[in-house]
Design a binder for these strands. Structure first.
Lengths: 329, 329
DNA sequence: CTGAAAGCGCTTACAG
DNA sequence: CTGAAAGCGCTTACAG
């Protein structure tokens, strides 16, 4: 089955391919009778004509595709809304968003053999080799959601800020000795490190001892062990900051299993404010990332970047982190 | 900054573009001295040459891109692993996977203006107009994860089967009057309907009265109302099947808030076996979808479809649903 | 064994 | 107001 091309439409409607192109693209500055326009549109419709993306991209030298590169670890529902928002914002500007789930460390250049995006937006920082390859292929490299001091003018949110905020809340509640419940999934280790750095820095700033870090797996056993670990420490922490809600929920279960309760025996604070947070026992205090607002901001940054804006023109980043206070801490 | 083309590489290495193409694509059946090959590769490397995806696609008439179209509602972490797996499987065959989050109901044809995929895989069924447009653009339409009786030979998992399985488990535990806790998010209504259909059908088959459906939002208030609703019904259900774990978790909280407990006052069964399920109070009985295995299967179907396999050749679908029994039902 | 040439389907100066 | 022609960068018969 041969694909329908603009020549077919031209023949059908008795005009040249030039005219077909003008009509279908609403090219400004050309005067074509309404009658002709209607005829062309009707033919295109009847034949089911879809212009070739490859030919258009090759000819114009630019595509209307923006690629969002996601890491290969689990991201949680918040990222979906970020994507939705970004896609909507880009669509208004005639751009389409496609997402690449980075997998197995295959270099990004493999992807460039398959698509020619106008720009690539990163959730995490790109390796220098990839960045250079994209630049050379004429692709704009647009940003990252991770702390990335090396990437000037890029979009960054503060993983460290999340850790700091957890400590601040715990301090304000009177805690002076803290523990940290780390996640064990190797795919998120980068984030664990960054958040933990924030926790350590905030402890140091506040004159508290360094947090006692215990990794906890998603099992009751592991959580019970972790709770025991903290309680039999030389200076047992009175509160624990968890990598995220999932880890916090496990710790909560570990406490209950030993007849202990939060926050009296051990306060617990999570990160994400996910769907289960209001319903844990006790309800979970957690850091909300306000990803909706972040998404709006990211969209702005991307759009501005696409218009050739420089680092200085980019809207300043507002940190939208917020502690949702419930009962666990 | 001009983009590097194969002409540049040819000039650098003193050969024709033909030879560059042969070398860089490892075209079989041509004999080129190792020395020449090395020279071409070195030039390409030095210049940072990335072949134009657009030109290659235009010329060969086929691309190595597979598009996975996801709906715009929240999908949960299981889908990530499905995507990862599919991407890996496709990569082994030289194909790249890109994901499109369907947004705001914009027609898929808009996407075809931007990319030329070899095939499009759907998570849900495509509207007939889109399907036809893709077919005409020469794109293979490859499947859907949703019950879709109209789509012969497509990949489908059984949303209805999930509902049936919940009922079977509840029946085996001795329950004879059931309730259903529906989700309210309009984006998942399609799934709610399908799962509920399965619940209804299974109830009818078992000679049980129709389930009493109450929508529950992700708030304690709504959950409390729902629990009251079931308890003051003419024939109060002794067990509730929930749309998913999130809804089940809310119902559990609604019970606790009234001093009731599962399963004695009301048994509760979820769907997903998400990270919080083992840690709820009481631990949640839920249906696991074994998405890893499903992903492997989907990958097989897609690959077979790409090779031109017909419906009959496709591997038979094995339902991998399974009840993870904990305490709540 | 290697190169000149055609052509994929489009857009866009340019000529009429 | 509309059309003929060039050319985007590649691959691949075909000729030498």
């Amino acid at each position: 089955m041969r694909t329908v091309t603009s020549s077919d439409v031209a023949r059908e409607s008795g005009v040249s391919r030039t005219t077909v192109s003008y009509v279908l693209n609403d090219t400004p500055g050309v005067t074509i009778s309404d009658q002709t326009r209607a005829r062309v549109r009707a033919s295109a419709e009847r034949l089911g004509y879809t212009p070739s993306a490859a030919a258009r991209t090759l000819r114009t030298g630019r595509s209307d595709l923006v690629l969002y590169v996601l890491p290969d670890w689990p991201l949680g529902p918040a990222v979906d809304s970020l994507l939705d928002h970004l896609a909507g914002e880009l669509a208004e500007r005639g751009l389409s968003l496609l997402v690449h789930h980075q997998r197995g460390g295959r270099p990004l250049t493999d992807l460039l053999r398959v698509v020619t995006p106008r720009a690539v937006v990163g959730f995490t920082a790109f390796p220098p080799a990839d960045r250079e390859a994209m630049r050379r292929a004429g692709v704009q490299v647009l940003g990252t959601l991770l702390d990335d001091p090396g990437a000037a003018g890029m979009f960054t949110t503060s993983q460290r800020g999340i850790g700091r905020l957890q400590v601040r809340h715990l301090c304000e509640a009177g805690h002076r000795t803290l523990g940290y419940a780390a996640a064990t999934d190797p795919r998120v280790s980068q984030f664990v490190e960054l958040r933990l750095e924030g926790v350590r820095a905030a402890c140091a700033d506040a004159g508290l001892p360094a947090p006692q870090v215990i990794p906890v797996e998603q099992s009751l056993d592991s959580a019970v062990q972790a709770v025991r670990g903290w309680r039999k420490a030389a200076a047992p922490p009175t509160a624990v900051a968890a990598y995220n809600d999932d880890v916090a929920i496990a710790v909560l279960a570990g406490l209950r299993a030993q007849g202990l309760t939060a926050p009296d025996d051990l306060a617990v604070i999570g990160v994400d404010d996910g769907p289960a947070a209001p319903f844990t026992v006790p309800p979970l205090t957690t850091v909300s990332q306000a990803l909706d607002a972040q998404a709006r901001h990211l969209a702005g940054v991307v759009v501005k970047g696409l218009q050739g804006g420089e680092a200085e023109d980019l809207p300043a980043w507002v940190d939208l982190l917020e502690v949702v206070v419930r009962d666990s801490a």
